[in-house]
Design a protein around this nucleic acid. Structure first.
Length: 352
DNA sequence: AACTCGGGGAT
DNA sequence: ATCCCAGAGTT
Protein backbone atom coordinates (compact mmCIF):
# COMPACT_ATOMS: atom_id res chain seq x y z
CA UNK A 1 0.00 0.00 0.00
CA UNK A 2 1.05 3.58 -0.47
CA UNK A 3 0.09 5.55 2.57
CA UNK A 4 0.61 9.22 3.21
CA UNK A 5 2.66 8.13 6.19
CA UNK A 6 5.21 6.25 4.13
CA UNK A 7 5.32 8.96 1.47
CA UNK A 8 6.01 11.61 4.09
CA UNK A 9 8.77 9.52 5.68
CA UNK A 10 10.38 8.85 2.31
CA UNK A 11 10.36 12.49 1.30
CA UNK A 12 11.68 13.60 4.67
CA UNK A 13 14.46 11.01 4.51
CA UNK A 14 15.62 12.31 1.14
CA UNK A 15 15.87 15.85 2.44
CA UNK A 16 16.90 15.46 6.06
CA UNK A 17 17.94 11.86 6.63
CA UNK A 18 21.40 10.36 6.84
CA UNK A 19 23.11 9.47 3.58
CA UNK A 20 26.77 9.26 4.49
CA UNK A 21 26.96 6.30 6.84
CA UNK A 22 29.74 3.86 5.93
CA UNK A 23 27.33 1.03 5.07
CA UNK A 24 25.35 3.31 2.77
CA UNK A 25 28.23 3.78 0.33
CA UNK A 26 27.32 3.06 -3.27
CA UNK A 27 27.00 0.55 -4.59
CA UNK A 28 25.19 -0.76 -1.53
CA UNK A 29 26.69 -4.08 -0.44
CA UNK A 30 24.22 -6.46 1.28
CA UNK A 31 27.08 -7.88 3.31
CA UNK A 32 27.91 -4.39 4.61
CA UNK A 33 24.27 -3.80 5.47
CA UNK A 34 24.12 -7.11 7.28
CA UNK A 35 27.32 -6.41 9.21
CA UNK A 36 26.09 -2.97 10.20
CA UNK A 37 22.76 -4.33 11.41
CA UNK A 38 24.51 -6.93 13.52
CA UNK A 39 26.85 -4.38 15.05
CA UNK A 40 24.09 -1.85 15.64
CA UNK A 41 21.90 -4.14 17.72
CA UNK A 42 21.40 -2.54 21.13
CA UNK A 43 23.97 0.15 20.54
CA UNK A 44 24.39 3.43 18.70
CA UNK A 45 25.65 4.57 15.32
CA UNK A 46 28.51 6.69 16.69
CA UNK A 47 29.83 3.71 18.62
CA UNK A 48 29.64 1.32 15.71
CA UNK A 49 31.29 3.32 12.92
CA UNK A 50 34.94 2.75 13.91
CA UNK A 51 34.26 -0.93 14.61
CA UNK A 52 32.56 -1.27 11.24
CA UNK A 53 35.44 0.36 9.37
CA UNK A 54 38.03 -1.86 11.05
CA UNK A 55 35.98 -5.00 10.49
CA UNK A 56 35.21 -4.36 6.83
CA UNK A 57 38.84 -3.46 6.12
CA UNK A 58 39.89 -6.80 7.56
CA UNK A 59 37.03 -8.91 6.18
CA UNK A 60 35.77 -7.11 3.06
CA UNK A 61 33.73 -10.08 1.80
CA UNK A 62 31.64 -12.91 3.22
CA UNK A 63 34.24 -15.32 1.85
CA UNK A 64 37.02 -13.64 3.82
CA UNK A 65 34.92 -13.65 6.96
CA UNK A 66 33.92 -17.29 6.53
CA UNK A 67 37.53 -18.44 6.42
CA UNK A 68 38.74 -16.18 9.22
CA UNK A 69 40.04 -17.40 12.54
CA UNK A 70 37.41 -17.09 15.29
CA UNK A 71 39.85 -15.27 17.55
CA UNK A 72 40.44 -12.62 14.92
CA UNK A 73 36.72 -12.05 14.45
CA UNK A 74 36.26 -11.72 18.20
CA UNK A 75 39.23 -9.37 18.47
CA UNK A 76 37.60 -7.00 16.01
CA UNK A 77 34.46 -7.06 18.14
CA UNK A 78 36.42 -6.41 21.32
CA UNK A 79 34.83 -3.56 23.26
CA UNK A 80 31.58 -3.56 21.34
CA UNK A 81 29.77 -5.93 23.68
CA UNK A 82 27.16 -8.64 23.16
CA UNK A 83 29.88 -10.88 21.82
CA UNK A 84 27.53 -13.66 20.77
CA UNK A 85 26.65 -11.45 17.83
CA UNK A 86 30.16 -11.90 16.44
CA UNK A 87 29.92 -15.67 16.80
CA UNK A 88 26.53 -15.68 15.09
CA UNK A 89 27.86 -13.52 12.28
CA UNK A 90 30.85 -15.76 11.74
CA UNK A 91 28.74 -18.92 11.83
CA UNK A 92 26.27 -17.41 9.38
CA UNK A 93 29.07 -16.43 6.99
CA UNK A 94 30.29 -20.02 7.00
CA UNK A 95 26.77 -21.27 6.35
CA UNK A 96 26.40 -18.94 3.39
CA UNK A 97 29.68 -20.13 1.87
CA UNK A 98 29.24 -23.81 2.65
CA UNK A 99 25.49 -24.34 2.20
CA UNK A 100 24.19 -21.37 0.19
CA UNK A 101 26.74 -21.35 -2.61
CA UNK A 102 28.18 -18.09 -1.34
CA UNK A 103 25.00 -16.12 -1.91
CA UNK A 104 23.26 -14.28 0.91
CA UNK A 105 19.53 -15.00 1.22
CA UNK A 106 17.65 -11.99 -0.14
CA UNK A 107 14.33 -12.52 1.63
CA UNK A 108 13.13 -12.34 5.23
CA UNK A 109 12.51 -16.05 5.79
CA UNK A 110 15.89 -17.08 4.46
CA UNK A 111 17.72 -14.45 6.47
CA UNK A 112 15.90 -15.42 9.65
CA UNK A 113 17.25 -18.95 9.32
CA UNK A 114 20.73 -17.54 9.84
CA UNK A 115 21.97 -17.24 13.42
CA UNK A 116 21.73 -13.77 14.93
CA UNK A 117 19.19 -12.47 12.42
CA UNK A 118 15.70 -11.99 13.82
CA UNK A 119 12.62 -10.55 12.25
CA UNK A 120 13.60 -6.91 12.61
CA UNK A 121 17.17 -7.33 11.38
CA UNK A 122 15.93 -9.44 8.46
CA UNK A 123 13.43 -6.77 7.47
CA UNK A 124 16.05 -4.06 7.74
CA UNK A 125 18.47 -6.00 5.56
CA UNK A 126 15.91 -6.79 2.85
CA UNK A 127 14.76 -3.19 2.58
CA UNK A 128 18.13 -1.48 2.97
CA UNK A 129 20.19 -3.90 0.91
CA UNK A 130 17.78 -4.68 -1.95
CA UNK A 131 15.27 -1.86 -1.67
CA UNK A 132 12.43 -4.33 -1.41
CA UNK A 133 9.46 -3.95 0.95
CA UNK A 134 9.85 -5.61 4.34
CA UNK A 135 8.76 -4.47 7.78
CA UNK A 136 11.37 -3.59 10.37
CA UNK A 137 10.77 -2.91 14.05
CA UNK A 138 13.80 -1.63 15.86
CA UNK A 139 13.51 0.69 18.82
CA UNK A 140 13.32 3.72 16.51
CA UNK A 141 10.45 2.27 14.51
CA UNK A 142 8.73 1.12 17.69
CA UNK A 143 8.83 4.59 19.18
CA UNK A 144 7.67 6.31 15.99
CA UNK A 145 4.81 3.87 15.43
CA UNK A 146 3.79 3.75 19.09
CA UNK A 147 3.40 7.51 19.16
CA UNK A 148 1.88 7.89 15.72
CA UNK A 149 -0.76 5.27 16.42
CA UNK A 150 -0.98 5.92 20.18
CA UNK A 151 -0.30 2.29 20.92
CA UNK A 152 0.43 1.69 24.56
CA UNK A 153 0.56 -2.08 24.56
CA UNK A 154 4.06 -3.42 24.59
CA UNK A 155 3.00 -6.63 22.89
CA UNK A 156 4.77 -7.02 19.60
CA UNK A 157 1.76 -8.33 17.75
CA UNK A 158 0.04 -5.00 17.29
CA UNK A 159 3.22 -3.14 16.46
CA UNK A 160 4.37 -5.69 13.92
CA UNK A 161 0.99 -5.49 12.24
CA UNK A 162 1.26 -1.71 12.23
CA UNK A 163 4.77 -1.91 10.83
CA UNK A 164 3.62 -4.31 8.13
CA UNK A 165 0.66 -2.11 7.21
CA UNK A 166 2.81 0.94 6.61
CA UNK A 167 5.52 -0.60 4.44
CA UNK A 168 5.36 1.00 0.98
CA UNK A 169 5.58 -0.96 -2.27
CA UNK A 170 8.33 1.29 -3.55
CA UNK A 171 11.28 3.07 -1.96
CA UNK A 172 11.49 0.57 0.88
CA UNK A 173 15.10 1.53 1.47
CA UNK A 174 14.33 5.21 1.97
CA UNK A 175 11.33 4.30 4.10
CA UNK A 176 13.24 2.01 6.47
CA UNK A 177 16.16 4.40 6.67
CA UNK A 178 13.68 7.21 7.20
CA UNK A 179 11.99 5.46 10.12
CA UNK A 180 15.35 5.01 11.79
CA UNK A 181 16.52 8.53 11.02
CA UNK A 182 13.24 9.99 12.22
CA UNK A 183 13.36 7.96 15.43
CA UNK A 184 16.87 9.11 16.15
CA UNK A 185 16.78 12.71 14.90
CA UNK A 186 13.20 13.90 15.53
CA UNK A 187 11.13 11.34 17.41
CA UNK A 188 13.77 10.74 20.06
CA UNK A 189 13.19 9.05 23.37
CA UNK A 190 14.02 12.16 25.37
CA UNK A 191 12.95 15.40 23.80
CA UNK A 192 11.06 14.79 20.57
CA UNK A 193 11.05 17.69 18.10
CA UNK A 194 7.42 17.25 17.13
CA UNK A 195 7.01 20.63 15.37
CA UNK A 196 9.62 19.45 12.85
CA UNK A 197 8.08 16.01 12.33
CA UNK A 198 6.94 15.12 8.80
CA UNK A 199 4.12 12.94 10.14
CA UNK A 200 3.09 15.17 13.03
CA UNK A 201 -0.19 16.08 11.35
CA UNK A 202 -1.42 12.49 11.68
CA UNK A 203 0.36 11.59 14.93
CA UNK A 204 -2.24 10.57 17.50
CA UNK A 205 0.06 11.11 20.46
CA UNK A 206 1.14 14.56 19.30
CA UNK A 207 -2.38 15.63 18.44
CA UNK A 208 -3.64 14.52 21.84
CA UNK A 209 -0.70 16.19 23.56
CA UNK A 210 0.38 12.88 25.06
CA UNK A 211 3.76 12.23 23.47
CA UNK A 212 5.19 11.56 26.92
CA UNK A 213 2.92 8.55 27.36
CA UNK A 214 4.52 6.60 24.52
CA UNK A 215 6.12 4.22 24.38
CA UNK A 216 5.28 2.69 27.70
CA UNK A 217 8.12 2.79 30.21
CA UNK A 218 9.96 -0.44 30.77
CA UNK A 219 10.05 -1.46 34.38
CA UNK A 220 13.63 -1.57 35.48
CA UNK A 221 15.03 -4.01 37.93
CA UNK A 222 17.81 -3.30 40.37
CA UNK A 223 21.28 -4.35 39.34
CA UNK A 224 22.77 -7.12 41.39
CA UNK A 225 26.14 -6.30 42.89
CA UNK A 226 28.77 -8.90 42.03
CA UNK A 227 32.26 -8.71 43.49
CA UNK A 228 35.12 -10.08 41.43
CA UNK A 229 38.75 -10.47 42.44
CA UNK A 230 41.28 -10.40 39.62
CA UNK A 231 44.76 -11.83 39.80
CA UNK A 232 46.86 -9.54 37.63
CA UNK A 233 50.39 -10.76 36.98
CA UNK A 234 52.65 -8.37 35.09
CA UNK A 235 56.16 -8.91 33.84
CA UNK A 236 57.32 -5.40 33.12
CA UNK A 237 60.76 -6.50 31.95
CA UNK A 238 59.22 -8.45 29.11
CA UNK A 239 56.12 -6.26 28.69
CA UNK A 240 53.78 -9.15 29.08
CA UNK A 241 50.77 -9.99 31.21
CA UNK A 242 49.00 -13.20 32.18
CA UNK A 243 45.57 -13.76 30.69
CA UNK A 244 43.26 -16.70 30.32
CA UNK A 245 40.37 -17.45 28.06
CA UNK A 246 36.98 -17.29 29.75
CA UNK A 247 34.45 -20.14 29.64
CA UNK A 248 32.24 -20.38 26.59
CA UNK A 249 29.09 -19.62 28.55
CA UNK A 250 28.14 -16.58 30.59
CA UNK A 251 29.50 -13.09 30.58
CA UNK A 252 32.37 -12.36 28.16
CA UNK A 253 32.20 -15.91 26.84
CA UNK A 254 35.42 -16.93 25.14
CA UNK A 255 37.12 -13.59 25.69
CA UNK A 256 40.53 -13.15 27.32
CA UNK A 257 40.55 -11.88 30.87
CA UNK A 258 42.41 -12.09 34.15
CA UNK A 259 41.99 -15.14 36.34
CA UNK A 260 39.14 -14.27 38.67
CA UNK A 261 38.55 -15.42 42.22
CA UNK A 262 35.82 -15.09 44.79
CA UNK A 263 37.97 -13.33 47.38
CA UNK A 264 41.21 -11.40 47.72
CA UNK A 265 43.02 -14.16 49.54
CA UNK A 266 42.65 -16.53 46.61
CA UNK A 267 43.76 -13.97 44.07
CA UNK A 268 46.89 -13.24 46.10
CA UNK A 269 47.63 -16.91 46.61
CA UNK A 270 47.49 -17.38 42.85
CA UNK A 271 49.87 -14.46 42.34
CA UNK A 272 52.40 -16.01 44.74
CA UNK A 273 52.19 -19.24 42.80
CA UNK A 274 52.74 -17.67 39.41
CA UNK A 275 55.56 -15.56 40.85
CA UNK A 276 57.43 -18.39 42.52
CA UNK A 277 60.19 -19.04 43.27
CA UNK A 278 60.39 -15.31 43.87
CA UNK A 279 57.92 -13.69 46.20
CA UNK A 280 56.25 -10.88 44.28
CA UNK A 281 55.04 -7.71 45.88
CA UNK A 282 51.27 -7.74 45.58
CA UNK A 283 49.54 -4.41 45.63
CA UNK A 284 45.82 -3.93 45.73
CA UNK A 285 44.55 -1.74 42.96
CA UNK A 286 41.61 0.63 43.40
CA UNK A 287 38.34 -1.20 42.84
CA UNK A 288 36.70 -0.66 39.49
CA UNK A 289 32.95 -0.48 39.03
CA UNK A 290 31.65 -1.85 35.78
CA UNK A 291 27.92 -1.65 35.19
CA UNK A 292 26.09 -4.01 32.89
CA UNK A 293 22.40 -4.12 32.16
CA UNK A 294 21.51 -6.35 35.08
CA UNK A 295 24.73 -6.64 37.00
CA UNK A 296 27.02 -4.26 38.77
CA UNK A 297 30.52 -5.66 38.79
CA UNK A 298 32.86 -4.42 41.50
CA UNK A 299 36.29 -5.51 40.40
CA UNK A 300 39.16 -5.74 42.87
CA UNK A 301 42.43 -6.18 40.97
CA UNK A 302 45.42 -7.52 42.92
CA UNK A 303 48.49 -6.63 40.90
CA UNK A 304 51.91 -8.25 41.16
CA UNK A 305 55.04 -7.60 39.18
CA UNK A 306 56.74 -10.92 38.68
CA UNK A 307 60.02 -11.97 37.04
CA UNK A 308 58.92 -15.32 35.74
CA UNK A 309 57.31 -15.66 32.38
CA UNK A 310 57.98 -14.30 28.96
CA UNK A 311 55.74 -13.63 26.04
CA UNK A 312 54.58 -16.77 24.31
CA UNK A 313 53.38 -16.81 20.74
CA UNK A 314 51.47 -20.06 20.71
CA UNK A 315 49.02 -20.23 23.56
CA UNK A 316 46.10 -22.52 24.18
CA UNK A 317 43.70 -20.90 26.58
CA UNK A 318 46.00 -19.12 29.02
CA UNK A 319 49.48 -17.70 29.19
CA UNK A 320 51.77 -14.72 29.07
CA UNK A 321 50.62 -12.25 26.47
CA UNK A 322 52.99 -9.65 25.08
CA UNK A 323 51.72 -6.09 25.02
CA UNK A 324 52.08 -6.00 21.25
CA UNK A 325 49.67 -8.93 20.92
CA UNK A 326 46.94 -7.41 23.06
CA UNK A 327 45.69 -5.31 20.16
CA UNK A 328 44.68 -8.45 18.29
CA UNK A 329 43.08 -10.20 21.24
CA UNK A 330 39.42 -10.16 22.25
CA UNK A 331 39.40 -8.37 25.59
CA UNK A 332 36.36 -7.15 27.53
CA UNK A 333 36.35 -3.38 27.88
CA UNK A 334 37.45 -3.20 31.53
CA UNK A 335 40.25 -5.70 30.89
CA UNK A 336 41.59 -3.58 28.06
CA UNK A 337 41.42 -0.50 30.26
CA UNK A 338 43.45 -2.14 33.01
CA UNK A 339 46.00 -3.54 30.54
CA UNK A 340 46.32 -0.06 29.16
CA UNK A 341 46.94 1.38 32.61
CA UNK A 342 49.60 -1.19 33.41
CA UNK A 343 51.43 -1.61 30.11
CA UNK A 344 50.61 1.42 28.00
CA UNK A 345 48.55 1.86 24.88
CA UNK A 346 46.62 -1.28 24.01
CA UNK A 347 44.18 -0.25 21.35
CA UNK A 348 42.13 -2.59 19.25
CA UNK A 349 44.10 -3.42 16.15
CA UNK A 350 43.19 -4.39 12.62
CA UNK A 351 44.14 -7.74 11.24
CA UNK A 352 47.37 -9.12 12.59
C1' DA B 1 6.82 -13.81 29.61
C1' DA B 2 11.08 -13.39 31.69
C1' DC B 3 16.01 -13.86 31.33
C1' DT B 4 20.64 -13.41 29.41
C1' DC B 5 24.01 -10.86 27.03
C1' DG B 6 28.05 -5.05 27.11
C1' DG B 7 29.16 -0.87 26.78
C1' DG B 8 28.89 3.95 26.31
C1' DG B 9 26.43 8.39 25.17
C1' DA B 10 23.24 11.83 26.86
C1' DT B 11 21.06 14.36 30.47
C1' DA C 1 22.46 8.41 38.83
C1' DT C 2 19.11 7.07 35.18
C1' DC C 3 17.56 5.94 30.66
C1' DC C 4 18.43 4.52 26.36
C1' DC C 5 20.22 2.38 22.22
C1' DA C 6 19.40 -0.30 14.04
C1' DG C 7 17.60 -7.21 19.27
C1' DA C 8 18.09 -12.19 19.32
C1' DG C 9 18.20 -16.56 21.60
C1' DT C 10 17.11 -19.38 25.48
C1' DT C 11 14.36 -20.97 29.34
Amino acid sequence: MKSGFAAAIIEWQAQHGRHDLPWQREPVDPYCVWLSEMMLQQTQVVIVIPYFERFIACFPTIQKLATAQPDQVMALWSGLGYYRRAQYLHAAAKLIIDDYGGTMPDHVDGLMRLPGIGRSTAGAIVSLAWNRPAPMLDSNAKRVLCRHQAVSEDSGKILWQTAQDHVPCHDARAYTQGLMDLGSMICGARAPLCPNCPVGATCKAWNSNSIGDYPKRKSLRARKLVEVFWGVAVNSAHSCIWLQKRPLHGIWAGLWSFPDFSNEKESKRWLYEIGSPHRPVVQSYPAKDHKLTHRHLRIYPAVAKVNSGTGVGAFADEGWIHVADLANLALPAPVRVLCDELLGSVNTGCCG
